[in-house]
Structures are given as C-alpha cells and as structure tokens.
C-alpha cells in the first residue's frame, strides 16, 4: 500500500487527488447525457473550442476558466446558428466550428507561449500533477454547480433526453433544457482541461457512461456506476502520471478504455464473450467471426 499512500504526503498529490475525484465524477455524470443523446461529437467540439477563450483570458489577466467557458458556450451557439440558419447539417457545423476554434486557440497560445509561463501541452494533454490551489477551488465550485443542477433537473432532463417531442408536447421548455445541458457540458470540460486536456476529455465524458450502460439498466445507475468508473480511471491515471512521468490525460484515457474493454467482453447482459443470444447457444464471438469472414 505504500506506493499508493506515500505520494499523498505531498501537497501537490493531495490537490491532484481532489481534482481527479471531482473530474471523474462530473465528466461521467454529464457525459452520460451526451452518450444517450448521441451527441459524443458535441463533447469533442466544445472541448476543442475552449482554447482561444483560455488564451485570451490569460492575456487579459482574468481567470482562464471563465475565458474557456465563454469560448465553449460561444462555440455551441455558433454550431446551432449554422445548422438552423443554413442547409449545413449539424455534424458538419460542429466540424467547422471546433476545428476553427481549435486552430485559433493553438495559434494564440503558441504566440503568447514565447513570453509567458504557459504550456500548450498541459492544456492539450493534461497535467493533473500541476494543478494549483486556486484551480482546485474552481474545480470544486464547478463540480458543485454541475452536480446540483443535475440533481435538481434530473427528471426533466431524463424525459427530454428520452423523448424530446413528448416532453415538448407536455410543455417542458426543451430549448432551455438543451441550453442548460450545453452549459453543464462546457463547465465540465473547463474543469477537466487541466487533468485530461481538451483533446482527450471526450474519452472521460463518454467511456465511463458507455461502460456502465453495458452493465446496468437505468439511467441514474449509468450515471452512478459511470461516476465510480470515472473516479477509478482518473485516480489510476494520476498515479501512472506520477510514477511513469506520463501526461495525465493519456494515462487516464488508457485506464478507462481498458475498463470499457472488460465490460464489452464480459458484461453479463451483453458481453461479447459471456452473452449468447442465439437459441443454439452459440457464442457471439463465433457468430461475429463468421460474419467477419464475409467482409
């Protein structure tokens, strides 16, 4: 156990641990909505769009979390503007907006990097061991806001996610709910950029929920189990980063992807190796392989 506890005597590791837990929980909870609404790409779009806001905030000397959040919200507004006011489809609009924002962000950060103590790589790939006290505080505030909102709006967001038309016909303000969800996603991604980085945060948004989805039948269970999976992954990633000097983002993502693979193979209800669907009892692997042969 020493290898687990020994690093925690350092203040920077304690800060990292707090951030790892908070980020693991909120990414999984908010990401569950993205997964069930098939909006994974939107998570990617918002996260890549944060960079220019972050850079501008840094130059202006204001809190980079605020700058990044504003850029994230602007990007979702632009995406919906393009896809509602032109024949361009939503996925294309996302591709256009997020790559443009990302390019602008890289350009700005590269330019200011020369004279300032700011490292682009930390925002791209995460540097959980480098979070300072004020970042811990901001992450905690965001996590509190996000979890409170999800708890208070749970039943409305569930109805809206499952049956948007039925929810709208029953008088729920689905435009407002959708915008609220986008704000929660932007907040979550902002809180996660120091630990996983904007490029890989999508993984921590989608994979824990998707893993839980293979194991439990109800949405709140997907969120809760997803949260546990997210926390395990981000703490493991933190230790990998500490012992092997890896950027924390890729370390976290490798762990969570490994957990997904286990669920994909061994889930009691849908695992590739454990669940036989055919009356003959033939395993799915065999069926899949037979099917593959023809492709």
């Amino acid at each position: 156990m020493d290898w687990l506890l020994e690093p925690l005597q350092y203040a920077f590791m304690q800060r990292s641990l707090v951030v790892a837990i908070l980020v693991g929980v909120i990414c999984s909870v908010v990401g569950s909505y993205l997964m069930v609404q098939r909006l994974a790409l939107l998570g990617d779009a918002i996260s890549h769009s944060l960079l220019p806001g972050l850079a501008i905030a840094f130059v202006l000397g204001i809190n980079i979390f605020i700058g990044a959040f504003i850029a994230g919200v602007i990007s979702t507004v632009l995406i919906s503007l393009i896809h509602t006011r032109s024949p361009v489809k939503e996925d294309a609009a996302m591709g256009i907006v997020f790559s443009a924002f990302f390019a602008l962000g890289i350009t700005l950060i590269t330019a200011i990097q020369k004279d300032n103590k700011i490292d682009l790589n930390h925002f791209l790939f995460g540097n959980i061991l480098g979070v300072n006290a004020s970042e811990v505080r901001d992450t905690a505030i965001i996590a509190g806001l996000v979890l409170l909102s999800v708890a208070l709006l749970y039943k409305e967001l569930l109805f809206y996610s499952f049956d948007p038309l039925g929810a709208q016909a029953n008088g729920l303000p689905i435009g407002l709910l959708n915008f609220g969800l986008m704000v929660l996603i932007a907040l979550t991604v902002v809180a996660s950029m120091k630990s996983v980085g904007v490029i890989l945060v999508l993984s921590l948004l989608i994979t824990p929920g998707a893993t839980a989805y293979l194991l439990v039948p109800r949405f709140h269970q997907v969120m809760l189990l997803g949260g546990v999976i997210g926390v395990i992954s981000s703490i493991s990633g933190m230790y990998l980063s500490y012992y092997y000097d890896l950027p924390s983002g890729p370390a976290i993502v490798l762990v969570v992807s490994g957990l997904f693979t286990l669920a994909f193979l061994f889930s009691p209800t849908s695992g590739l190796l454990t669940y036989a669907r055919t009356p003959s009892g033939e395993s799915q692997v065999l069926q899949s392989l037979k099917r593959l042969r023809w492709w």
């Binding site: 039943k155 569930l158 996610s161 008088g171 439990v216 109800r218 949405f219």
Partner: peptide, 16 residues
C-alpha cells in the same frame, strides 16, 4: 436502447 425501465418511462408522465 435508452437505459430506462418501464417504470421510468411511465413516471415521465408525472414530471410536469
């Protein structure tokens, strides 16, 4: 394929 049970769906009728 949404992760919801029959009960979850019926309770959506009580949201408003």
């Amino acid at each position: 394929s949404f992760p919801a049970t029959v009960w979850d769906v019926v309770m959506m009728g009580r949201v408003r």
